[in-house]
Simulated assay, not measured.
Amino acid sequence: MIPGAEELDPVRLLERLIAVDSVNPGLAASGAGEAAVADLCTNWLTAHGFDVHRLERNPGRPSLVAVAHGTGGGRSLMLNGHLDTVGLGDYEGDPLSPRIEDGKIFGRGAFDMKGGIAAMMIAAARATARGPLRGDVLLACVADEEHASAGTEEVLESFTADAAIVTEPSHLQVTLAHKGFAWFDVIVRGRAAHGSRPDLGIDAIAKAGHFLVAVEELGRRLAEAAPHPLLGSGTVHASVIHGGEEPSTYPARCRITIERRTVPGEDADTVQAELTAVLDQLAVTVPDFSYRLRRGLHREPFEADPDQPVVRTLLRHARSVLGHPPVVRAEPYWTDCALLHRAGIPCLLFGVDGGGAHAAVEWADIASVHRLTDILTGTIRDFCS
């Protein structure tokens, strides 16, 4: 039996999702985590006939995989979205009290990305309620995307699919590529000494200044390189610097954290080689320049094949619902698409319209939530039939 229209209204479900605190504790120590919102999703999905698996390697940080099993012989499709949000502290008004006004729904996570979660849950329920599909439909409602993406990594250890759609907000535009990133710490070594003894001390902060100038020059070279057709060029910047103990002492070390945004063809290894070349040149040309390079978190860039069946299927249904071909574009930020792609799952990103991601006021366009739901419903039935 097909559930009633009111029960399968994505905006009503979105209101319920916004009202649950799911701040990522990796971003804010007081963050509630994903447990409560995962409970809400579990109860809803179980009531609508899904087989729900709860993955919780990190206590209090669950991810869900809800499966509507097919009859066999069809392609499987995973819809992926993250349950966590950024913090509530700087939000204007009550971030957990959803408010509808002028065709928009306001609240923390409305845009990034509980709007996508609501749309994919309703779409999967609608698609499977209309009659059996041959392929499995999987909903991956994951933890921790806003910090380290531990949720999608855990999901991919146990589940796979023939294709995937990540419902991150994209303004109803089809995202087929995004940049990656690599974080490195550069520790510039000096020698501690009393401030009155320049003959004994080596100023690590002053030496680090040479590296900062070199980083700026590296950024200029990257900007002048041949750009990626969708993403442009890679970028680099110094994001954090620590050094020194007190005014009267030569600093023995200065640590600079570098973020390098990467495009397809670049990865942590190429960035490490790039930074090493810069630092080795400074060691040759700057007296007493000594360093250590330490690799941190890094994530690959992503680029989809536009001829993949999942891309062609979604483009067809988006054109039908929107009344025009959707814009195809790339994002400068990183998403879980890269993890799915690395796992051999063809994927793309497509989500709601709105604004205020990580900002003091956040909102999703209500009409876009409905359109996204309709597009996903048609894509699921077409791809998995």
Rank of each mutant, 00 (worst) to 15 (best):
E7V: 12
G4K: 13
L13I: 02
R12P: 11
G49E: 04
A28I: 12
I2N: 13
G26M: 03
E56T: 00
D9I: 08
A47W: 00
P59C: 11
G4E: 14
A32P: 09
S30I: 11
P3N: 07
L13P: 06
A19W: 01
A32N: 05
P3F: 05
H48M: 03
R57Y: 12
V23W: 07
V20W: 07
V37G: 01
H48Q: 03
D21G: 04
E6D: 14
E6N: 14
I2H: 13
G60S: 05
E15Q: 15
I2W: 09
A32G: 08
G33C: 06
L13S: 06
G60P: 09
A36R: 14
H53L: 08
W44A: 00
V37Q: 08
D9T: 04
D39R: 02
V20G: 05
V11D: 05
A47R: 11
L55N: 03
S22R: 10
G4W: 08
V37C: 02
E15P: 00
P3G: 05
N58T: 15
A19G: 06
G49M: 03
T42A: 07
A29V: 12
T46C: 03
G4D: 14
I18Y: 07
A35S: 15
A47N: 05
E15V: 09
V20E: 05
V20P: 11
I18F: 05
I18G: 06
L8E: 03
E34A: 00
R54K: 12
G33S: 09
L17E: 06
V37N: 03
L45R: 02
L14A: 07
N24H: 09
S22V: 03
A35R: 15
L45V: 01
E56V: 10
S30N: 15
N58S: 15
P59K: 11
V37H: 02
M1K: 15
G31V: 00
N43K: 14
V20I: 12
V20C: 05
E7P: 05
N43C: 12
L45E: 01
L40N: 01
E15H: 13
R54W: 06
C41N: 10
P59T: 08
T42Y: 01
S22Y: 08
R54Q: 06
A32F: 04
G49K: 11
S30K: 15
D21C: 07
L40I: 08
D9H: 09
T46W: 01
A5I: 11
L13R: 05
